Computed example of a mutant assay.
Amino acid sequence: MTTFTEYNLDPKQFTFLKELQENWQVIRDEFTNFKNQASQEELQFSLDVMGPKNKTIKTKGNSKYSAFGVLFQGIFIEEYIRVHQIQYPQYESQDVPQKALELREKYFPLLCSAIAKTNEITDNVLRNVYFGTFHPGLDVKLHVNYNPHMNRGYLGLIVPPGDIAMKICHDQLYWHEGEFLVLDHSYPHCPHNYTDYDRTVLVVDFFKTDKPRLEVSQFEQELVKERMQENPYSLGVFGKNDKASEEDFIKYGLSHQLEWDKAL
């Protein structure tokens, strides 16, 4: 039986995640259909435009993490691009928001329907929704995600057997297909994929429900403004304050001495 903590949260307490979890196979099918049926141009566009770019969190070695999604800071990707007037020089001859809308509606209608349905009845509790893939050999260095206003849920879509885990504080946690893993990412953590296969989850960031909505909304606005000034291609998801501090390394090392030695 799983023992839940202040950083590994019981998904059942967040009942608004039910709509996504009940449709996990449909969501997985939309993802695999996109990967198999989309043109090379569409695939590249999704990574260039529809995925948050990070300049702070580092990996060990050459293995990478890829991501693209449909919802950022509570609004769909095409509207987010318009609101923040993000420019993509490599696509200057195209209507980028329109292209993002077309891809979203063409390949992910059921996912977007589930998101819209959930946010309609929860006053927009869902903030970011995107697919995250760990490629074989990925080893992410210790970091935090400075989002004290949000929790992060991972809905397992494609999780091969083997050593694919999230090391956070005193635990090593694993993803499972069709299940949510919900974490408070303000705690230092480092995930890895030591298998020969991709691991894909649906990343779902949502407002903390034990804090006043006005408070977390205002904090998000200030944080996103700062992050978009740092890097507009972060889509407000990542920022410089995600870097782990020396204190984080020390705390982490007390429980994971070998990993601490490697990190330092």
Rank of each mutant, 00 (worst) to 15 (best):
V144M: 03
C112E: 10
V201T: 13
V125Y: 01
I121F: 07
A38S: 06
E120H: 11
V216L: 02
V140Q: 13
Q87H: 14
V96D: 00
Y194D: 12
P160W: 07
E230P: 04
T195D: 00
Q257H: 07
N151F: 10
T3H: 09
R127H: 11
L126M: 11
Y194K: 14
Q94E: 15
K58I: 02
T15D: 09
Q229D: 13
Y197V: 05
Q21F: 10
I27Q: 00
D210A: 00
P191Y: 05
E226T: 13
K60L: 14
Y80I: 00
G253L: 03
W24L: 09
I164M: 03
Q25V: 12
H149M: 15
V125G: 00
P109K: 01
K60H: 12
R227H: 07
L214R: 03
Q73A: 13
K243N: 10
K64T: 09
P212Y: 04
E19W: 02
V129K: 03
A116N: 13
E19H: 08
Y80W: 06
D48M: 01
R227F: 06
L110S: 11
T122V: 08
I250Y: 15
I250N: 14
T59F: 02
I57D: 01
N119V: 02
E215W: 08
F14W: 07
D171K: 11
E247C: 08
N33V: 08
N231E: 09
Q73D: 15
W175T: 06
D139K: 13
Y88H: 08
W260Q: 07
D242N: 10
P188N: 08
C190P: 00
G253D: 03
F31P: 00
F206D: 05
E41C: 01
G137N: 06
L103F: 02
S234I: 06
E246P: 05
L142C: 02
P212D: 11
L258V: 14
G156T: 03
I115E: 01
G253K: 05
F206P: 03
Q21G: 15
S186E: 08
N145E: 15
P109M: 04
E246W: 12
N23I: 00
K251G: 12
E259F: 11
P109E: 03
R28Q: 09
D48K: 02
H135S: 07
F34M: 03
T200C: 07
P212H: 07
R152C: 07
Q85C: 12
D123K: 11
E6C: 09
N119D: 05
Q13A: 14
G156C: 06
G51T: 03
I158T: 15
R104V: 08
C169S: 13
P161A: 10
D196M: 04
E30D: 07
F206N: 07
P136T: 03
Y252T: 07
T195P: 01
V237Y: 11
M228D: 03
K106R: 14
H185K: 10
T2K: 12
Q13G: 08
K106N: 10
Q73G: 08
Y107F: 15
L183N: 01
K211Q: 13
F31K: 04
N145Y: 14
L20N: 00
Y130L: 10
E179T: 08
V203W: 02
M50G: 02
Y187I: 04
I77D: 00
L101S: 12
E247M: 12
